[in-house]
Design a protein around this nucleic acid. Structure first.
Ligand SMILES: [Zn+2]
Ligand SMILES: [Zn+2]
Ligand SMILES: [Zn+2]
Ligand SMILES: [Zn+2]
Lengths: 159, 159
DNA sequence: CTTGACCTTAGATTTAACTCTAAGGTTTAT
DNA sequence: ATAAACCTTAGAGTTAAATCTAAGGTCAAG
């Protein structure tokens, strides 16, 4: 039997979060004290841990709601249903990774093209790429001199 | 010279989006007609393309605001400033990728442990993993028979 | 002179998961 | 008996980037 603050501390969430989960139908305390304090049982704690594990693998609260209703009525669901949820989440996560990897290589290419030095950004390759397009990036060629120890690796210089 | 609908179509955004960008200080039309219609110049269109390119590499609108103010005042900024923005975005993107990859492997392990068949979820490995922990997943061992052609690869069976 | 496509505004709604506020009641220890 | 630490509620705020709504004005074609 835990009060809200105890359960929150045990599971490393905020009390706000537990009230939020209750408001959204994910987890309700099994009872209340006479004065209205929430009382969670060990069973409630297990349900919370289920929720947190599902969150840890990437499910949203809406999806976790669905998983919880399956969990409470397993015999009326098939492995196909459960695996379907996991697989569709997996596909979604992989699509997001692909999008972010595109960002990553684009940003890396921009970064590589810029010396990153203290000189004026007037001829900065990054800005030039954003002005025209990000596919053909020219490495910048400042007229100034650089401190070789810092900028040589990225910047091709004239003088 | 474009009206809002023309520019929107040309750049494949909604008119709502252009009004939104205006409200948030990213792009204002250079003028208005007597009746109040927005009029965008080619210069405005270029600025929009800058915005869209920056979005395409992952920058938020707030970051794009910053890039735009640098772009309009290049000589008072250094390459270091611009590259700093790119690199910090890159770090952020890479952190997000790492988080999603963790989700990905966790979900993949869950998926692999489940036969995905039409049988009851009562002994589903996925649910069992969420009930206890997601690190030690047991492959499910149903008492039923499976259609080998569909489930053999993931499911280890008894009988 | 009316239809339809276009344009205007301010403000509300959406999504997700909290996070915070205000105003107050309860428990426990000193 | 009073302070500290806890608890209660309803509801507003946060973040990001739109997207939608309502109520109305403009413009070209037929
Ligand atoms: Zn340089
Ligand atoms: Zn540069
Ligand atoms: Zn099986
Ligand atoms: Zn299963």
């Amino acid at each position: 039997m835990y009060r809200i603050g105890e359960l929150a501390k045990q599971c490393e969430v905020k009390t706000d979060t537990l009230r939020f989960y209750e408001k959204h139908g994910l987890l309700s305390p099994s009872s209340r004290t006479d004065s209205g304090y929430r009382i969670y049982t060990e069973n409630d704690a297990e349900r919370l841990r289920f929720i947190l594990r599902a969150k840890a693998v990437g499910f949203t609260l809406a999806e976790i709601s669905e998983l919880l209703s399956i969990e409470l009525d397993k015999s009326n669901w098939a492995c196909a249903d459960v695996k379907g949820m996991v697989d569709s989440k997996l596909a979604h996560v992989e699509a997001k990774i692909a999008e972010l990897k595109f960002f990553q290589v684009s940003l890396q290419r921009l970064s590589n093209a810029c010396c990153g030095g203290p000189e004026s950004a007037e001829h900065c390759s990054i800005l030039e790429a954003l002005e025209t397009n990000t596919d053909n990036i020219k490495c910048e060629n400042h007229d100034h001199h650089h401190d070789d120890s810092q900028y040589t690796k990225n910047c091709q210089r004239k003088g």
